[in-house]
Design a protein around this nucleic acid. Structure first.
Lengths: 264, 264
DNA sequence: CGAAAAGTTGAACTGAATCAATGCCGGTGG
DNA sequence: CCACCGGCATTGATTCAGTTCAACTTTTCG
């Protein structure tokens, strides 16, 4: 991952993972949603200190398990997923650097799906007390978490549309556009290029396709000069056409800040 | 709808819509989630007074529109949906009697999807003030709304699985089982039978299938003696097999009440 | 270097879409 | 009361997007 060194960014394929200080990702993410004070940032930075590395393909929370802490991803891709009896896996959502998973779900309630890493990840756990205090004492952060959650819900709805009525290439275009916007928010994109630490099988499990068909769809998109994907680096070559192909309208990812708040 | 009279229930096909006092549905729904006090019930009953009837296929909230009120469905089926440029419609969620739509979304924020009726519906609008007061003054109701919202999110995730990796008949079995449980909670089921005021086209737009294939899948399920669907009445004849076919595990619809609450 | 995982390719197959015709039923108007 | 109309359901024929299976190549990594 070549993480600690901060050499000038030399853009080549295979070098897209220019992760700018992973410990910072939570600040970046929430800072992209609201305006954080220095104190807010300090409180968030505190959290990242307990982070640890986790291998790819490791479960962070099992299905049915009682929730004991929230999880923050600081580096790498994790996901929510469900496993079918048949062995098929469906990925429900990506957890990208800066994402907080289940800050809102009550302590001890049991999960109806699993959470696991896709790539190797740096993650922090957040105990009930820490989170409660944060939300209590830092209203701006609480607001950021509410907005992030709304975006997550909206994303799930987009995925329903994606799976329900788009073709393979449309789905893929939509997904890549979505990841672009989300990764941009935390500074992990340059030149429409980002690290995509997923196998074609992972993409298949996300898009409701077979891995073989993912492969062929990727080839088709490459052939049309819409993107390049080499190693684990994805470059979107023709964003306008990709957006149009996937009917991607990024509004759902940015639920604007708002005066009053009800239940949520 | 034969609504006011409370004749002894005579179960025949076509008579499944025995709606027990529609004005009551919000109480029934939230009462199925938490224990409501008399005062809570009174407060909720208050709301239903402003209800009005709406024809099938009418939009209640347009995509992009700024939200001005929450909506409660008291009778009939409504839905969240998105329309593609191609004309295809994807239904994102059903709003059944008792469901409150967007109580949590802040006033004035713009919708990224539309809400509309499927059948004719009785709906009430809830202004910001009313809702805010309710949540402020009635913590039990606020809790019920939080729990309902969690169930709605979990349902969206289930739908991702449904669309992502189940076959036509599996999807349909899962949907019918889900509707059974949800309608049971508000007393709209007897003998595993309920009113399903949807066309096959609506089902197609829900399940990500063509209307023709929905028709054939229905026939297959009928042939296997798993269900009967005549007119707008659905009877599930073999619940165990339907559940197993759709891999339906109802836990996600009942996120148990819980001590502490964070962001949500 | 060797083994395992990931990606690629081809061929055969299939679940579901599409197209088009027909049947059915409820409502409407003459 | 019947004829007609429009929306919905049903059926058959055809096509197609995507799956499956199996072999093979390339990359990764110990």
């Amino acid at each position: 991952m070549d993480n600690g060194s901060s050499v000038a960014f030399d853009f080549k394929f295979g070098a897209a993972d220019f992760a700018p200080d992973a410990s910072n990702m939570l600040v970046r993410k929430l800072g992209s949603v609201v305006a954080l004070s220095a104190a807010d940032k300090a409180a968030l930075a505190q959290i990242s200190t307990s982070a640890r590395m986790v291998e790819p393909d490791v479960d962070l929370i099992n299905e049915g398990e009682a929730l004991r802490y929230a999880i923050v991803v600081l580096e790498g891709f994790a996901c929510r997923y469900k496993q079918r009896r048949t062995g098929q896996r469906q990925i429900l959502a990506y957890l990208l650097p800066g994402d907080l998973c289940d800050g809102d779900v009550p302590y001890r309630s049991s999960m109806d799906h699993a959470v696991g890493t896709l790539s190797s990840c740096r993650v922090a756990r957040l105990g009930q007390d820490v989170l409660a205090e944060l939300i209590d004492r830092r209203p701006v952060i609480a607001e950021a978490l509410r907005l992030s959650k709304r975006a997550e819900i909206a994303t799930a709805r987009e995925w329903v549309v994606n799976l329900g009525c788009r073709s393979a290439s449309e789905r893929m275009a939509h997904l890549f556009c979505e990841l672009l916007v989300r990764l941009e928010a935390v500074g992990l994109v340059r030149d429409n290029t980002y690290a995509l630490p997923l196998t074609q099988r992972d993409l298949a499990n996300t898009l409701g396709l077979s891995n073989v068909h993912v492969n062929r769809t990727l080839q088709e998109l490459r052939r049309q000069k819409l993107l390049e994907l080499r190693g684990r680096t994805l470059r979107l070559l023709d964003l306008p056409r990709l957006r149009s192909l996937g009917e991607f309208a990024p509004a759902y990812l940015r639920p604007g800040s708002c005066p009053t708040q009800y239940v949520s």
